[in-house]
Amino acid sequence: MKNLRLKAARAAKDLSQQALADLVGVSRQTINGIEKGSYNPTIRLCIAICKALDKTLDELFWEE
C-alpha cells in the first residue's frame, strides 16, 4: 500500500527523495520503495524519517 502521507510530508518540507535519503542515510530507491509500499522499513528507519520530517510515527506510518 502506498504511503501517501510520507510523500506529502516530504513534499511539504520541499525535499526530494534523494534529499530525504541523504538525511536518513539510505538510498533513494529505499525511500521510493517505502512511498510505493514495496518496502517495509524497520522501526529504526521509520524513526529516522520521522525525525527528519518533524512528524510522529503515528502521523506517517500508522494505518487507520
Partner: peptide
C-alpha cells in the same frame, strides 16, 4: 586505505 561499501537495510 579502507574502502568499505555502505549499504542500507533494504539493500
Amino acid at each position: 586505505l579502507r574502502v568499505r561499501s555502505e549499504y542500507d537495510e533494504r539493500q
